[in-house]
Structures are given as C-alpha cells and as structure tokens.
Design a protein around this nucleic acid. Structure first.
Lengths: 365, 365
DNA sequence: TTGAAAGCGCTAACAT
DNA sequence: ATGTTAGCGCTTTCAA
C-alpha cells in the first residue's frame, strides 16, 4: 500500500509514469525471444547463439535492466549474502574486524548485511533470526560474548537452525559454544596476550599492577583476567583483588576509575587497561593527577587499535590481528563445503607491541 | 549445485538429513489449515480465529519456522533494506555517519547492507548497481565525492534509475548532483566550518596559516579550501599557494608533509589540517622537530572525530554532526512518500570546538 | 539453439 | 473466518 501511494504521487509529479522495474519478460519481448533465453544470456552458463545473445544484450541495455536479486535468490535458494553482527560499528576494534569480514565477503562475491546490538544479548538473538529470514550464507558474530544464563543454549539452538538451513554461525573473537555445535570459530589468544603483557610489566620490576576495566561474565574480559592472574602466579605473586577493578570498555570508565584509585590511595606502579580506549582514559587521569607516564606509572593497553599510536606517550599494548581475523572467519565459513576436512576452529596469535608508555618500575621512595 | 554438494556431505555426516528450510506449506499441513491462513497469522493484519491462530503458532514453533524474506520481498516488491556505501568503514568519520544510518534504518524496521569502495569511483558505480539488484529502498553514499569526468552524469543516471524503481539515491556529506535530479542530500557546512576555523586562527593573530592535505577535485577538500580562502580574503590577506599543500587524508601524509615544510624552510605559525587524522600526523611531526604546540605553532583539524580529544594537546577542530547526518539522511529518504512536500535537501551546521592545540601567534623573534 | 511450462515461498484478491 | 487461486520474477527441466 505504501508503494501504491508512492506511485500515485510520483505519477502526479511526472506525467503519469508508474514505478517500473524492468523484468526479464520485457527484455524478452523487446528482443523477440523467450524469457528463458534471456535468463540463459544472463547466466552465461548455457549455449546461446551469438546473434541472439547480442540482441538480448542490446535489449537489456536499452531497458537498463537489472536482475531482481530476490526472484533469483528465491529459486536458487541461496542469497550471496553474509551478515555480520557487531556491538558498535564505531569502535575501532569492531570496525577493523568488520573490515576484514567485508573484504573477504566481497572477494568471494558476497554482499554484506550489518546489524548492531549495542551489547544487548536479546537484540543479538533477534538479529540473528532476522538473518535467518534473509537466508544469509553465514552469520558472523564479532567480539566478546556475554554469558548470561540461558544465552549459551539459545545460541546453540540458533547454530543448529542455521546449519539445518545450509547457513553457518561464525564466531569471530569469541569462544566456541561447545564441541558438537555446528559453528566456525576464529578466536585470538586473549589469555596469552594478557599473560605476555603482564609478564612484560613484571619483568620491568612492577609488582603492584592494576588490571583496569574487568567485566565479569564477558568472555573477552574473563580471558584477559586469567592471563593476568596466571602471569602473577607464575612469579609467585598472589593476585590482589583490590587491584582488579571492574569498569566499562570506555575512555570515560578508564578515566573515572583511575581517579578513584588515586583518591582511595591505592598503591600501584603500573596499570594494565583492559582495552586501549580504557588506557586513553587512564592516561588522561594520570596526567591530570600530575603523575608522569612512564616515569611514575607505566600504562599499557590491549587491542592495538590505531589510537594506541596517537596517544601520548604512544601506548604499549597487545596486538590483535583484527582484519586477518575477520577475513579468516569468512573464508572458513564460506569454503567449508569445498574443504570438508578443514578445521573450523582456529586461534590466532597475539603479541606485545612495545611503545613508550611503559618503563621500569620506579624505586620505592 | 553447490548446495547439492553441501547436502550430500552433510547427509553423510548426519544420518541422511537434507537441508530443510521450513515453508509456510509445511506449517499449514502441520496445523491443518491452508497456507493462506498461516500467512495471515504471520502478517497479523487480518482476522484469524483465536484457536486457529494458536494452533498455527504452535506449528511454527515446533518447526522452528522463519519466513523467507526473499519470497516475501518478491511479492511485496519491497525489500526493507537500506544500503550504504562507504569509503572505508574503519575511518571514524565514516563510521559515525554509518552508525547514524544504521540506527535510523533499524528504527524504521529496515536492514542495512554495507559496501566499501576504497575511494574507487568505478567500484562505487558497480556497487550501486548491486544495490539496484537488491531493490534497496535507499542507497546512501557516505562522504566526499570524486569529480572525475563523466562521473557526475553516470551518477545522475543512477539516481534516475533508482527513482524509477521506487528507490532513492541519498548523498550524505556530499554535494547535490543538480537541481532536477531525484535525490536526497544531506550536507554539512564544510565551507562555513573552514571559514570559521580560519577566522578563529586569524583572530589569534596568525597570518601564515598552512592548509594541509588538500585534494583538488574531491568535494570535501574543495569546499574547505574555499572557506579558508574566503576567510583570508575577508581579512585582506591573499591566499599563498605555497601554504596550501596537497596530501592524502591520512596520518602519514600529515606527518610527511609537515616534515617537508620544515625541511623546505617554509615559514608558518599555524597549521590547519584538513582532517583530524592529518592533524595527528602534524602534531607528531612537530613534536619530533622540537616545535611546541601551541606555543610555537598552533594546530587545528577538521571533523571532530573522537581521536581529537585524545591527541596531545587536545585538538581544536571543526565539529560535524556525523550521526545526526546519517540519521537525517535515512529519515528523509524513507519518509519522502509520506511527506511529499518535505525538503529533500538539507545542510547541517558545523562549528569550531576550541581545545588546547591552538593559541595566540608567537611574537616574531 | 530455443520455447513452454513448472515451480521457488509467499501474499492478496476472490470465493465461500 | 478460512480456503482457493493467481501470480511476484526468475531458473530450469523437458520438448521440440
């Protein structure tokens, strides 16, 4: 009905022309052939006489014809579409993975659907169903997973449903749902990165290292916490709960929590911000508080988003191969039919990138 | 054929089950009603007896049924899809506009298709055609337009083609194609922002202001150049070609061009970087060269991406209402049928955000 | 090499 | 309130 309205109004404005979407039939009529022949010309995968072909092509050009992707998808029962679901396109972390996803999808001749969830698990589930309606060939979930009760089971169900329909659930940067779930997962070594980073700080002589911005229940956060604790323990240190401070993955949170730590008189010589964005806030707060980085306090981050290089001092952080991760995820998912034996679960490496924001622990005054 | 292969392999793995996508017919059979009734239950816009309704809903749940968006779109001849075409999702500038687009599209019940062009006009044209196939309700082009010869005409053709098919070409942050083109354009006041920023620097006593990163032919760049020149002229100053240096919209370019200026011995007291990213490079180069900001040199940017606040010193820049722009673009495009009189061309305001990177011009030594 | 016809899954008249 | 029928635009047997 909406389109009726459309047509009428536009009709008034432009001497009675209806909304016309050229169809294969019209092309056929104009070229004096049957629709089937036009279809064959379009498909290109079937013998058509040269003269007929050019007549048809001519007609298509004259009518400025474009195929109807829906009609085609309906009969082909494949959509050439990859969907990706992201927390927030705006964040550099997500954006770079998304970039990889889009690149690979395009390279494989697919279109990309995006949806954002803003961290809402319910919305995530809803969105995946939308993608199911769209018959997306793969649904890529980007970034850390919540672990609210019941969430896991529902995801498993969705994974199976997608699988049954010939589609695929892809987890990029989040943990597997279980051993028997039909899924493609590409993780990165969160725990290893956190372990390496914490070890690095320890090797610089730091012992009271704040881990800032933990979010219990979020996979990304939990894994980093584990790496941090493991590094401490392996040096014979006991993780101090008062040094592990929860917070959001945001600049503001980093800023506020740091000010609070200082106000509370907590003693520390290094801050491991759980995210580069958080680190940005930490740096800001320390500067305001008159503490020098890295002379008085060392600050490190995690993710190695482009911002890390721009911060002052340039941020030492854990590098994650964002784009590569996105590309791999899509590649695995789309080619699984052709390589039945191929591994559908991969973990990519991470490593510490040393810049200027961390230095030796200051001597106790 | 690809799916045949799929099915066979999966079949081998999982005791002979075919790929099955539940259809409305199966639901109907299970509920003991006709397909039409199921359709009515789904649509919800038609009277159905309570008992029948619940039987149908039961069947849908049992079969884990989801509608086929393609079949639906085919008959409804509307896709519920908005496409957006972007240079590079990774850039904060694009990402924030994209965010606005996605938000509004979602709010209006549409799905989002994304494509990236990486600045290639040919690819842009190709992508728009893809969107035409997808019958997207609106195709949103985000960011500055190239002005290669012939490009304009082809865009006009596409705008008309989309219009004829009931779709809409939307230009977000790029100039109109012409007065009689069926398009929705939401610009922002590029020239005004550049004028205001340049005036601000002039008012601080700067006279030799470098404009760094111009790209002749790119709409965004050209407009900013105009604003810069107009501000100078209105103070009786003549724009000095040697102070307008071309470059890419990137950090690296800002860095290199600044070093080159210094090496060449060009005299200046302020740098107006055409983009915040460029400004980041400028700051870096100046720091390396031992020039203090803002004491020795003032630096300002344009766009007000989040990075601007993180830079040290925090960057004075021109604010652009990115998300608002994206939202407005989609809103106008989707609601044009309901508000036939509504303006389809808008220009949003920009303004200078004063932070710490610009100060009074230094006294000549 | 080409055409005719069937049908993909759904909705929307038109009947009942 | 529900069922029947006829397509939407395309691809794909099956014939010719």
């Amino acid at each position: 009905m909406k389109h009726e309205g459309d047509a009428k109004r536009e009709g008034d404005a432009k001497r009675g022309s209806e909304i016309k979407r050229g169809t294969i039939k019209e092309v056929a009529a104009r070229a004096g052939v049957s629709p089937a022949t036009v279809s064959r010309v379009i498909g290109g995968t079937y013998p058509v006489a040269g003269s007929t072909r050019s007549r048809v092509q001519r007609a298509m050009r004259d009518l400025d014809y474009v195929v109807n992707a829906y009609a085609r998808a309906l009969v082909a029962s494949t959509s050439n579409t990859v969907a990706f679901v992201v927390n927030d396109i705006t964040g550099a972390f997500f954006a770079h993975i998304a970039m990889g996803v889009e690149q690979q999808a395009t390279a494989e001749g697919r279109l990309c659907l995006v949806c954002t969830t803003h961290g809402d698990p319910a919305r995530e589930l809803a969105v995946i169903n939308l993608m199911r309606e769209q018959r997306a060939e793969a649904v890529v979930l980007v970034g850390g997973a919540p672990s609210t009760p019941g969430y896991g089971e529902r995801m498993v169900k969705l994974a199976r449903a997608l699988d049954a329909a010939g589609s695929r659930l892809v987890l990029a940067g989040r943990p597997s749902l279980g051993p028997d779930v039909p899924e493609t997962v590409v993780e990165y070594d969160n725990e290893g990165g956190a372990f390496a980073m914490t070890s690095y700080l320890l090797s610089l002589g730091h012992e009271r290292i704040v881990l800032l911005g933990t979010q219990p229940g979020l996979s990304t956060s939990d894994e980093r916490v584990r790496g941090y604790e493991r590094a401490l323990l392996s040096r014979g240190l006991t993780p101090d709960q008062s040094l592990m401070v929860p917070g959001e993955f945001s600049r503001e949170s980093g800023y506020e929590q740091t000010l609070r730590l200082i106000a509370d008189g907590v003693v520390f010589t290094a801050v491991y911000a759980i995210t580069d964005m958080v680190a940005a806030g930490v740096l800001h707060a320390l500067r305001e508080a008159g503490r020098r980085v890295p002379e008085d306090v060392s600050v490190v981050g995690n993710d190695d988003i482009p911002l890390a290089q721009e911060l002052y001092p340039a941020l030492t952080t854990v590098h994650i191969p964002h784009e590569e991760l996105g590309r791999t995820a899509v590649r695995l998912a789309l080619n699984r039919a052709d390589h039945p034996g191929a591994q559908q679960r991969t973990k990519m490496g991470t490593h510490v990138v040393v810049r200027d924001s961390a230095g030796p622990a200051p001597r106790p005054a």
